[in-house]
Design a protein around this nucleic acid. Structure first.
Length: 597
RNA sequence: GGUUCCGUAGCUCAGCUGGAUAGAGCAACAGCCUUCUAAGCUGUGGGUCUUGAGUUCGAAUCUCAACGGAAUCACCA
């Protein structure tokens, strides 16, 4: 049993016995003892002064005496002001470690068919351009969140809503048809999403040129934009698409197909995946349907021009458009339709949308609308809102060409990892295949960890040149520690040492070992906390703390050269547990760990 | 202007269900590789936790206000 839980119970018993009072377990504040003081756990006694009617020091002393007599886990204690510092008996540490060691799923809960189902939407790309740095943050957060929810006993469905319709894809299609010479991914050797993205850029270029030419002739910018033949063609194409024009549809399917192939490659490399993908081209009709139903039920209202609105002034918000006067749908309509399809497909208990914080308002509204429309999870939907990724020069602007492409970024990271490994001579004994694999794991690990360790809500700065280094609080540092643990374990195995399944009972622990055990025990709490807080960064920072703690231990105490056989075995087991927890923590973040590096 | 979020070391970030002298990394400086992987370890310097009130025995943490920054308040998605 967890030491903290055990102590909390003992403290409750102490208070009952000493002062005859039942107190709320939440008032028992146990915290880690500060480094400067002796002890492992500290009880804050201030909340109990009213019950004892005594000074803080005396109250702490009384409780300490009681615990020392009644609770075997307490070996000794000291009192400083209102703080009761408890020292835990070594046997309790060993028991705790044994529990963690024996439980391969320590800290995780398995989902059953009865478990609540969480659907997590993330990524949500447009089909007119490749994935960029913003998507990278989204994808990593979404995947990590899915892992964390699963570890907390949810059934998890990962989903993606692809924005595959609208004027943006028509622009790419039109540009390809006009300027493309029939170029395909196969003929050009370009990745499909990049190819389509290039034509999106080409459209913009030609469009800009048209505007400029029209303005030369004396038109205002607005007039020029309205008259641009290219833009008119794009709009006509959208109308044809909506009408189901076979030619336009065929081109649309062909080009989207290229994009999906490209995305699939990027996703695979990034290590993200989906259980179910929805397409807006399929859901927007349902959305309109739902809105019409809502209108009939009197949930929404119609304006004179025929447009349909929701009145949210009761919730302190404005009126929100749901259907245009011409009957076409807007973003909100599509999200309602998507929600309807999802609800029909799965019995969702919790819906989590991983979407940037620029859409906070949208999801506030969506939550209310879904609730009105009768979706059970609508009121409690979670908008897992994350901040923007900025570059040192400022925000990414596609117009200014400062967008960081996801594929390029991963290439760069892996290349940097390869170079660094080579400089350090790490790969001298590896085959080229092994070296490439390690570079991949380390490069991607650096990228993923760098992004995930930051609180998702915050805007973050990403400096491709400087921000990614491999020292300190980074993915490679953690991976490196893991690899070193594996190395020690391999060497031990080579010496014929077999790790026992039961720990030696009477090892004298040093302070570093006690700290490590305490840190390992926190893993379960941290995973649970990350689940309720939707916080991958909580996991990331925990793993770093653990690794840092282990590194100090590693440098202070030799493992394989330890003469006392029992101590050696104990330290090997401790190392292997640290390795296992690090591995599982990183797995929650979607980060691989290498066996050597 | 309304709403939401953020403000902690020179820089990038932890810490936030209120607890003792606020922590890491980077950068700077000084040590440690014939010894389990130096992508490491140790040490030094660096802070009015934006500001001001309030609640409390006790506030970086909770409340309110101000200041600074971001997003949004589109018949774009």
């Amino acid at each position: 049993m967890n030491i903290e839980t055990k102590l909390t119970e003992a403290i409750l018993a102490a208070i009952h016995s000493l002062y005859g009072a039942e107190v709320n377990p939440a008032t028992v504040q146990l915290q880690k003892t500060k480094k400067e003081f002796e002890g492992h756990l500290t009880l804050v006694v201030f909340p109990f002064l009213k019950l004892s009617g005594k000074r803080p020091e005396d109250t702490a002393q009384e409780i300490g005496d009681y615990l020392l007599n009644q609770e075997p886990a307490v070996a000794k204690f000291n009192v400083i002001k209102g703080f009761l510092n408890l020292s835990i008996a070594p046997s309790s540490w060993i028991d705790l470690l044994q529990t963690i060691y024996a439980d391969k799923e320590y800290g995780f809960s398995q989902a059953t068919a009865q478990s609540p189902l969480a659907m997590i939407e993330y990524s949500s790309p447009n089909t007119n351009k490749p994935l960029h740095l913003g998507h990278v943050r989204n994808n990593l957060l979404g995947k990590a969140l899915a892992n964390i929810m699963a570890a907390n006993g949810y059934q998890v469905v990962k989903t993606n809503i692809v924005n595959d319709r609208g004027i943006h894809i028509c622009k790419s299609m039109l540009a390809w048809a006009k300027y493309g010479n029939g170029e395909t991914p196969a003929s050009s050797g370009k990745k499909g999403d990049h190819l389509v993205g290039d034509y999106y850029v080409a459209f913009d270029k030609h469009y800009k040129a048209e505007i400029a030419a029209l303005m030369e002739k004396g038109l205002t910018k607005e007039e020029a934009e309205a008259q641009s033949p290219l833009m008119q063609e794009a709009r006509e194409m959208l109308v044809k698409w909506e009408a189901g024009d076979p030619q336009v549809r065929a081109l649309w399917e062909q080009m989207n197909g290229w994009v999906y192939e490209g995305f699939a490659e990027t996703y695979k490399r990034m290590g993200v995946d989906f259980d179910k993908i929805y397409y807006e081209s399929n859901t927007y009709i349902d959305g309109k349907q739902k809105v019409v139903e809502g209108l009939e039920k009197g949930l929404f209202f119609k304006k004179d021009d025929g447009s349909v609105w929701a009145d949210l002034s009761g919730e302190g918000l404005d009126q929100k458009l749901l259907l245009r006067a011409d009957g076409t749908s807007v973003y909100m309509t599509q999200d309602i339709g998507t929600a309807a399809q999802r609800f029909a497909d799965y019995s969702i208990n919790k819906m989590i949308y991983v979407v940037g914080n620029e859409q906070n308002y949208h999801f506030q509204v969506l939550s209310i609308l879904l609730d009105r429309l009768g979706f059970e999870w609508g009121k409690d939907l979670v908008h897992f809102s994350y901040g923007m990724v900025e570059l040192p020069e400022g925000k990414m602007k596609s117009r200014e060409g400062t967008v960081v492409d996801a594929d390029d970024l991963m290439d760069d990271m892996i290349e940097t990892a390869r170079e660094t490994s080579a400089e350090l001579g790490k790969l001298d004994n590896c085959s080229p295949e092994e070296a490439a694999e390690i570079a991949r794991i380390v490069g991607l690990g650096a990228l993923k960890y760098f992004i995930l360790k930051v609180d998702a809500r915050k805007n973050m700065t990403f400096n491709p040149k400087e921000s990614i280094d491999f020292n300190g609080n980074t993915g490679p540092f953690i991976q490196y520690t893991y690899a070193r643990i594996q190395s020690v374990l391999r060497k031990a195995a080579a010496q014929g040492i077999v790790l026992p399944s039961v720990l030696p009972a009477s090892v004298a622990l040093n302070e570093k070992e006690e700290n490590l055990i305490q840190k390992l025990a926190e893993f379960a709490t941290v995973v649970a906390q990350a689940g309720t807080d939707y916080s991958p960064s909580g996991i990331a920072n925990y793993v770093y703390d653990l690794v840092k703690e282990y590194n100090q231990f590693y440098h202070d105490f030799s493992i394989l050269r330890e003469e006392n056989e029992e101590v050696k075995i104990f330290r090997l087991v401790l190392s292997s547990i640290v390795g296992s927890v690090v591995n599982r923590g990183m797995a929650l973040l979607g980060i691989e760990v290498p066996e050597r590096m």
